[in-house]
């Protein structure tokens, strides 16, 4: 009789919990859907893919499933949607410049191609969010039509270089230093999603890590510096570094920069080396650099495969 009462009480408790959870699943409001101001434009296959795989987080058309409303899940979903919309919102597309729109499309492709988006845990629960090879190929073909042509000819008149030794400091605490000019070149890249060319330098710690294949994770103290110019074309069609744009730093310190995956970010713009952005900007850098997970967050390593 005693055992039977316990079972009854337990059953009642379990029933109440179940009803509560079910009620939550149908009534909890995880996020609002603000008005759509302007949607991304792309070929049908690409647009359908974006709507199916990306819109739940990166738009104001979030479709919340019942299991997204469950305890714990709801708070994770809310966090993901808020973060995603802040970074990129396909239904507030009109708020971006043409250059920003294109830049986000290239980023979206690369994040999907790297397997970072849709988030693996999201895709596992939302089977229709998987991006097929055909869709990715269509996305790539669409971006091929957006290659940026370099038209600037060699005529940049450079302003005087910085002569001070009191170099600027970025919000992340990273100070510019011309020391990188003595480091080994890690790589050089030419972009077709914009009109820039770059040279990457690696300090001795970073270069040793590359040569010993110890870059996952990179050792503390590794520094990679990227110098960015606009491309200029000469009369024979060769591209040269023209207008100087910025110098970017990635400084490895797993503990100090834990919130940005162990890398500290800094960018110094124009010949006066004006520090760019805020601490929040570094979050945005880290978010994009997740696409280079295979190489510890560094994009520009020459590979032989």
């Amino acid at each position: 009789m005693k055992i039977s009462n316990r079972i009854k009480i337990f059953s009642l408790f379990a029933g109440i919990c179940t009803v509560g959870v079910v009620a939550m699943a149908f009534t909890t409001k995880v996020v609002d859907n603000p008005p759509v101001t302007g949607e991304v434009e792309a070929p049908v296959v690409v647009k359908n893919m974006l709507q199916r795989a990306c819109y739940d987080c990166h738009s104001n058309k979030t479709d919340i499933k019942w299991f997204d409303k469950l305890p714990i899940a709801a708070s994770i979903v809310r966090r993901d949607v808020v973060t995603a919309r802040k970074h990129l919102n396909f239904t507030e597309w009109d708020k971006l410049s043409k250059g920003e729109q294109d830049s986000f499309l290239w980023e979206a492709y690369n994040m999907i191609n790297a397997g970072n988006m849709p988030l693996p845990e999201y895709a596992a629960l939302h089977s229709n969010a998987q991006v097929t090879k055909e869709e990715l190929a269509a996305f790539r073909a669409y971006l091929e039509t957006k290659r940026v042509k370099v038209t600037n000819t060699i005529d940049t008149v450079h302003t005087a270089a910085v002569t001070t030794t009191n170099y600027p400091i970025a919000p992340t605490g990273i100070q510019f230093s011309p020391e990188f000019r003595n480091w080994q070149v890690m790589s050089t890249t030419s972009r077709i999603d914009n009109t820039t060319m770059r040279v990457m330098y690696a300090n001795p710690i970073a270069m040793k890590a590359i040569k010993e294949h110890k870059i996952n994770p990179w050792p503390d103290g590794a520094i990679v510096v990227k110098v960015v110019w606009e491309k200029e074309v000469d009369s024979e069609g060769n591209m040269h570094p023209g207008k100087f744009l910025n110098v970017q730093y990635m400084v490895r310190n797993a503990k100090q920069y834990e919130s940005t995956d162990g890398w500290g970010y800094a960018k110094f713009e124009t010949p006066t080396l004006k520090p760019y952005g805020t601490l929040l900007t570094a979050q945005s850098c880290a978010s994009c650099h997740k696409a280079a997970n295979a190489t510890g967050g560094i994009f520009d390593l020459p590979t032989s495969n």
């Binding site: 080994q184 294949h213 060769n238 040269h240 590979t303």
Partner: peptide, 24 residues
């Protein structure tokens, strides 16, 4: 994920500095 094969660094700059980069 697949481990990338990083291309060996064949050229040794021997302390020389970069003057410029040219793309053809």
């Amino acid at each position: 994920k697949e481990k990338p094969a990083i291309r060996p660094y064949v050229f040794n700059d021997s302390g020389l500095k970069v003057i410029t980069t040219i793309i053809n």
